[in-house]
Design a protein around this nucleic acid. Structure first.
Length: 914
RNA sequence: GCCCGGGUGGCGGAAUGGUAGACGCAGCGGACUUAAAAUCCGCUGACCGCAAGGUCGUGAGGGUUCGAGUCCCUCCUCGGGCACCA
């Protein structure tokens, strides 16, 4: 394709209109309450050093089209884009390129802004922000102090200020249980317990309730990255998502966010949002709610001490033939008998050396050892041996289980290996169903004394009830979700607004002292280690004394040296778009109410890779802000849409190396690089597969309008599809076709255009159909079929001799969200003085869609045998007559008896024959 | 292993239970041109047939229905998620 085609000069047109929109602030969003609002959002992009490839704009173009459409439909649209520029990827890029992240980040943002600009996106540029700006992260820090100053009220399941808790404790309306670290409510008011506590105990208890807290817990320590990572940032191979380095569990003192207290609401409120079902499912699985029974087992040799387990199958209690403790279980030492002490210690040592990877994936074989001690089954007093095994996890339930080998695959495997008895207590309802053990299905109880014969469901409830009466059991709910590890030992992140006193006192930096700015540091690199036993050292520890040390009321404090993780900024950026320059608040309440409306963000588009991480974290923060009255919706993102990835062909040679996709020659279905045969595969576009296609190249060669159109024409937005530069000619031809129908070779308007109403009936009908189809398709984000329909109409215009200016103006309006530059240019040449982007979306007249005649298909036994035009309101009799006069129908009916006739007016007439 | 989402021409993909393959790419033939590019017209699922037309055809096999790519059951296969969560 020659970019200097004499007719359609997109190289001039596109920059002209981009400048026009800029200068006229065409897409500036303001709080115009006379119009309904529409808030459309793209997932927060990270400004990669590699720049965009054509896969990135897929979602950006989709939201742009939809936003432009909504604007033309009369909505006040908020659509902008900022940059998630803090975090590991940005910092790793800086390290790899030997640049300071502040510099590389700024450069990468500038490049990305340029790339986005040339796509003609209708963003409100004045609302663009970056998480690395102090005016932004001061509010990230502010929200952190809110989390620090809050607890979750167990009754109301609601975040409230710590001062409320203190007041309640002092008034005695709630009690502090210092054992379980739980807030308990009791009938009578009693402040004695609280008043009896020492100051330290009080502080400890309060800390144990804060939504942001410090804790020493086994965390994911990645020595090579020099930082700890959240569970979500560790692959199931036990390596870091970024860099694929080994990760070790180490108990370290870290900041955590108590997201677990919101587990139930995060689960429940999924019903409030319009999200793809698979994403909701992933969140449900991640939260992992499980209803069951908590059972207390007395210990044979240790009176008074009890072992707490959680089970979802209380009905199988009579089948519990052994117990298992997690290796980290606090009672393990107490329980282990003297003769077993040595072997247990050897066992613990053998597994503590293992990484998570070895403990889970590779260790298919169960390991464990007997502790020497026994527990008593509360239903029958039988003693049950207690083992320790690493297949039980300390982090779930109580870190101990009752093992029922007959009805649990894992327990069965373990029992078989260690010769532990297996007692069947459930048999299938239908005898003859899978009798083989382990059987984990439904059934009725056997070998269970008084419960024998009951259905498993009934028995589960009854046993739980009976245990509860005896005080050794109760219904219980467990979640897989863990608290969120929130600190990183890295430089490029938001500093914590926290000060540490010499005596261990922790105080937040006051609101008037925010932001705590990241100190400029030459040496920002993390210390990385190959020895997993080294402790992390945050780079901020090397900042100058005047930053790390702070005076408050005559006391010296040390700043928190960790930084926040990547996810912090993306938890609330959508609220800042609403009021990006506010220096008094993160967002003004009035603007928040207007733009968030009833359901929050009206459309949120992004990849499915954020299904649990970002979306769960952001929902959590939003709920806290909601509880504290800072936002007005329960959920941040009312509707979510996942766009599919764009894949591209990549070519591997014999030695497994990737050859540049641009230099591949194809011959008879085989592919060659420099004469050598290579194999084709498909993968995510990127540097490593050497198959990136930059939007810059495509824009230069075909223009942004063509790229936008092609990205949308490739296939359904939600599905994964391969990029091929071949097909792009098609949509480019379509645009040029429209151009030529409107502009003659001499640059004047085409002589085919007539003034006044459309005179051609078919053009009128097809235009109506096109308005209808495009409107419905855009509304449902089916951009590919909307484009097809416009192609059909353009092909029609080409065939007719004349068409009205009005018809073609309407077409341009339909086209304008997709190819805005060309649409503006032609709209302008047709005489308009205002932007097409501000014109009103065409509506269709259903009555004009109806034709006097309709095509009815003839079928014999459901098989197509012909068709004919009949009057729209033709009766069955009339249609039968027409059909029976058809040659093919006659042939197929010959000698057969008509048993039945099915007539669907305007569609088919079907003869059922014998 | 469990839970989702797919499988339709040479390719990307269209089809409220009602003509499978819209639209586009690629391919073939033609027009225009000194020639090319661009553009336009025609053909293009497979097989049989001069044609009219017929038979088959949406991963495989069964079923429901007058009629199934579409609904139900079983299986194969690709992609994604979770994975000792008691």
């Amino acid at each position: 394709m020659d970019q200097n085609s004499p007719d359609y000069e997109f190289t001039n047109i596109e920059p002209t209109w981009q400048k026009y929109w800029d200068e006229h602030k065409t897409f500036k969003a303001s709080e115009d309450t006379s119009k309904p609002k529409y808030y459309i959002l793209d997932m927060f992009p990270y400004p990669s050093g590699a720049g965009l490839h054509v896969g990135h704009p897929l979602g950006f173009v989709a939201t742009d089209i939809f936003a432009r459409y909504k604007r033309m439909k009369g909505f006040n649209v908020l659509h902008t884009m900022g940059f998630d520029a803090f975090g590991l990827p940005a910092e790793q890029y800086a390290i790899e390129h030997g640049v300071h992240p502040a510099i590389s980040t700024e450069k990468n943002i500038a490049n990305m802004r340029r790339q986005l600009y040339q796509l003609g996106l209708a963003h409100d540029k004045e609302r663009s922000i970056s998480t690395t700006e102090t005016s932004f992260y001061r509010w990230t820090q502010w929200i952190f102090t809110l989390l620090y100053d809050c607890y979750c009220d167990p009754e109301e399941q609601k975040a409230k200020p710590i001062s409320d808790l203190l007041a309640a404790l002092e008034a005695g309306t709630v009690q502090a249980n210092t054992e379980t670290k739980k807030i308990e409510t009791s009938a009578e008011q009693n402040a004695d317990v609280w008043n009896g506590l020492s100051d330290n105990e009080k502080t400890d208890f309060i800390s144990s309730q804060r939504l942001a807290y410090m804790s020493e817990l086994p965390v994911n320590w990645c020595p090579e990255l020099g930082t700890v990572l959240a569970n979500e940032e560790v692959t199931n191979q036990g390596r870091s998502e970024r860099g694929n380095f080994p990760v070790y569990k180490r108990p370290l003192h870290q900041w955590m966010l108590r997201i677990t207290t919101f587990a139930e609401r995060l689960l429940e409120d999924l019903s409030l949002v319009d999200w793809p079902e698979p994403i909701k499912m992933m969140q449900r699985n991640w939260i992992g709610k499980s209803e069951g029974t908590e059972i207390l087992f007395e210990l044979d040799a240790i009176p008074g001490e009890k072992l707490r387990v959680f089970t979802t199958r209380a009905d199988t209690l009579f089948g519990a033939t052994y117990m298992v403790l997690a290796p980290e279980h606090p009672l393990l030492d107490t329980i282990t008998t003297d003769d077993q002490k040595a072997s247990v210690e050897t066992y613990i040592a053998s597994i503590s050396d293992k990484s998570d990877l070895e403990r889970t994936d590779l260790a298919k074989d169960k390991t464990g050892i007997f502790t020497g001690n026994y527990a008593l089954n509360p239903v029958n007093g039988k003693s049950i041996p207690i083992w320790v095994a690493d297949y039980v996890l300390m982090s779930y339930g109580s870190g101990a289980i009752m093992a029922v080998p007959a009805h649990d695959e894992r327990d069965f495997e373990f029992a078989t290996k260690f010769d532990i008895p297996i007692t069947q207590v459930i048999e299938p309802f239908e005898k003859g169903d899978a009798q083989e053990l382990p059987y984990s299905g439904e059934g009725r109880l056997i070998n269970s004394e008084g419960y024998t014969g009951m259905s498993f469901k009934e028995a589960g409830l009854k046993i739980t009830q009976d245990l509860e009466e005896k005080g050794c059991g109760k219904l219980s709910i467990q979640y897989k979700l863990r608290d969120w590890l929130f600190s990183r030992q890295r430089y490029w992140g938001e500093p914590f607004p926290i000060l540490h006193g010499e005596d261990g006192e922790i105080i937040p930096v006051g609101e008037d002292q925010l932001p705590v700015e990241l100190p400029p540091m030459e040496d920002f690199r993390p210390r990385s280690y190959s020895d997993p036993d080294t402790l992390p050292t945050p780079p901020l520890g090397r900042a100058t004394e005047d930053w790390t040390s702070v005076e408050r009321d005559g006391k010296t404090y040390r700043r928190e040296l960790n930084t926040m993780p990547q996810w912090a900024g993306s938890c609330w950026y959508y609220l800042r778009y609403i009021d990006p320059t506010n220096s008094e608040a993160f967002c003004s309440p009035e603007k928040e109410k207007y733009w968030m409306g009833e359901n929050g963000v009206d459309l949120y588009v992004g990849g499915a890779e954020h299904a649990v991480l970002h979306l769960l974290y952001a929902r959590f923060w939003h709920k806290v802000l909601y509880d504290l009255g800072h936002v007005s919706t329960k959920e941040p993102f009312g509707k979510l849409f996942n766009q599919g990835y764009i894949q591209a062909a990549a070519f591997v040679d014999e030695r497994g190396r990737y050859a540049p996709a641009t230099e591949i020659e194809e011959k008879d279905g085989d592919f060659f690089y420099q004469g050598a045969k290579v194999k084709r595969e498909f993968g995510k576009m990127g540097k490593s597969l050497k198959n990136s296609v930059s939007p810059d190249e495509v824009c230069q060669e075909y223009g942004a309008d063509t790229l936008r159109l092609y990205l949308m024409f490739l296939g359904p937005l939600e599905s994964m599809k391969p990029w091929s530069s071949k097909g792009i000619e098609g949509v480019h031809r379509f645009l040029r076709k429209i151009w030529r129908e409107i502009v003659a070779i001499d640059g004047k308007l085409s002589s085919k255009i007539t003034d006044g109403d459309e005179t051609d009936a078919e053009t009128t009908r097809l235009l109506q159909e096109t308005i209808k189809k495009v409107t419905e398709d855009v509304e449902a984000l089916r951009f590919n079929t909307a484009i097809s329909q416009m192609m059909i109409f353009a092909n029609h215009l080409q065939k007719v001799k004349k068409f009205s200016i009005e018809s073609v103006q309407t077409l341009l309006q339909l086209l304008s969200p997709f190819a805005p530059h060309m649409a503006e240019e032609l709209w302008n040449r047709l005489g308009a003085t205002d932007s097409i982007s501000l014109s009103q979306w065409p509506s269709f007249d259903p009555s004009k869609l109806e034709t006097a005649e309709v095509r009815v298909v003839f079928q014999i036994n459901g098989k197509f045998r012909g068709n004919a035009m009949v009057p729209r309101d033709a009766s069955q009799e009339d249609v039968v007559k027409v059909a029976q006069a058809d040659k093919r129908v006659i042939a197929h009916l010959a000698g057969k008896e008509i048993r039945k006739i099915i007539y669907i007016p305007g569609k088919i007439i079907n003869f059922v024959v014998g």
